[in-house]
Design a protein around this nucleic acid. Structure first.
Lengths: 243, 243
DNA sequence: CGCGATTTTGAGCCATGTCAATCGGAGTGG
DNA sequence: CCACTCCGATTGACATGGCTCAAAATCGCG
């Protein structure tokens, strides 16, 4: 059962980052932003390592303000497949507990999020439609990422998968202002990467070492720095060399 | 551009199979069925090998009466990833041509389908709600299959992937009465299988040969027969022997 | 300082990919 | 009916990426 709280005080800076990214995406005016900031004082807090499930009988959308989560499924033989990582600014679909059908959402870090239904119902008339729209778009993007992920798993080598994922995470974090230079927090163990990318932990490690050796990225202390974005992009297969 | 036709006469038997499967799923009464049969006289015909795109500016749902399709994306280096196979009874999301963003739907055989919007608008009040519900459910199932596919690609060996897919196809075709014994049509080349399962054509071939040699299935003439469903299921699920 | 979790490394094996050639059936033109 | 061609299926030889097992090193933390 997820521990909910309305009182914990989030790190103001991160909330402000999320808010301003949100204001940009949804085109909020100054007044809207003030009201949103008010709304964001009450949020759900989910502890790291626990499933994020909906309280009601049906599924519910949550908008992530702070923290990371993932969608995953554990197979009968205890292997685990991670379907996606969910970052601040993303929307996650929390299903009722016990509904393990498609996948389970699990908090990877302490997770602060806002119930989308509540958000919409307490928003003022003006931004409500744009908010609803943004939430729908976010959900679509989640689906689209599934396609990307299938391509990664089906067509890419280990190095390509790792790099492709890192670039994806970078771009998404950059949109919410969580990238400085090309450095960002990465609260994932190599086992998480392995489970997401369909590789063994050992091979993820070797792959990272190879990239590090080539001076393409640095990973340390739960953080990454991408060193040659251009070159990394070409490894990930995103760019075709002109023929 | 897909060739549309309202005149071609589908094979009555297959249409009746689709209709009765549909009636079962949506709980149509005899009168509904008669009206549906009327509706199904006019359908869109898409030739094999061509993209199935929506005619209007937005995406549109089509209900497949006859034939196979797939969702796929071609990568810049000409590799191809197939995301899903779509069978009679399934619903496909046709996007406007030029919208290659997430994926493209391609007809693998001659494809007869009905536009869902038209279907709903011409249905009588009684079944309309149940129809809409069935279409929404079908769409959800499509999404759920993406998760299954990710698991296949991320966690399964070549043999497991092949068997898992075959069992999936069998179950889905069985629901619309297209399986006799454990034999069904399979209008896929080994290259299609390879592109879907993230394997090389050569290795798909070898994997099939191994399964054939073990007497687990037969593939010939665009058709398959599964011989030991039980045993195949245990291969696909990596059921562990008790230690 | 000791413990559990994670990262790192090495050695060796096996699955899968690549390259290249052959084979078989279906269609096509003569 | 034959020669030709094309596409897909098949096979062999060989290279290699990624896995497994096992152990060491390192880190985070009490």
């Amino acid at each position: 059962m997820s521990e909910l709280g309305k009182t914990h005080h989030p790190r103001t800076e991160e909330v402000e980052l999320a808010l301003s990214a949100f204001a940009r995406r949804v085109l909020l005016d100054a007044g809207d932003v003030v009201r949103m900031r008010q709304l964001m004082r009450s949020f759900e807090l989910h502890p790291a390592g626990f499933p994020v499930s909906s309280l009601g009988p049906g599924p519910s959308l949550k908008w992530i303000v702070t923290g990371w989560a993932c969608e995953a499924r554990v197979l009968p033989d205890s292997r685990r497949q991670i379907f996606s990582f969910l970052l601040p600014g993303d929307v996650l679909l929390a299903r009722p507990a016990h509904a393990t059908r498609p996948c389970t959402v699990v908090a990877l870090t302490r997770l602060e999020c806002i119930d989308v239904d509540q958000l919409l119902s307490s928003a003022t008339e003006g931004p409500r439609a744009r908010l609803a729209d943004a939430m729908a778009t976010a959900t679509d993007i989640n689906e689209e990422r599934k396609f990307e992920h299938i391509v990664r798993l089906g067509q890419h080598s280990a190095a390509e998968r790792v790099v492709h994922l890192m670039l994806d995470l970078r771009d998404r974090l950059a949109e919410v202002g969580l990238v400085r230079g090309d450095t960002f927090r990465l609260p994932l163990t190599q086992e998480h990467l392995a489970d997401a990318l369909g590789l063994s932990v050992v091979h993820v490690n070797r792959t990272l070492r190879a990239l590090r050796t080539k001076g393409l990225l640095e990973i340390r202390f739960g953080g990454v720095t991408l060193l040659h974005r251009q070159q990394l992009a070409s490894i990930a297969g995103r760019v075709q060399a002109p023929p």
